[in-house]
């Protein structure tokens, strides 16, 4: 096939199958990202509040939430009176 610069992914698509695990991982991230961003749309939340709202293990909330902070979707808000837990908010 003719290879067009800027569209070379099409070339590899012909030659290589994307694994089911990679497709499942993408689907899961899209779902979790949406649920976290939707939850934060309503109000700023702590990890504990997100854990309860999303019914997701707290360590997974930490991992995904911190990744969303890293990529600029979410930002860290205020810390509680005990200096123990931060709240998180959407990055405007």
């Amino acid at each position: 096939m003719e290879i067009e610069k800027g569209k070379t992914y099409k070339y590899l698509r012909e030659k290589r199958e994307v694994s089911q695990a990679a497709k499942d991982n993408l689907k899961q991230f899209i779902k979790i990202k949406k649920s976290i961003l939707d939850a934060l749309q309503e109000s700023d939340l702590t990890i504990e509040q997100l854990t309860q709202k999303l019914n997701m293990p707290a360590n997974e909330v930490v991992y995904y939430l911190m990744s969303l902070v890293k990529y600029g979707f979410v930002q860290t808000g205020a810390v509680d009176d005990m200096d123990a837990y931060f709240s998180y908010k959407l990055k405007k």
Binding site: E48, N59, V62, L65, D83, A84, F86
Partner: peptide, 8 residues
């Protein structure tokens, strides 16, 4: 932070 629940 603690990776288990984000506590300092």
């Amino acid at each position: 932070l603690r990776p288990g629940d984000g506590k300092v």
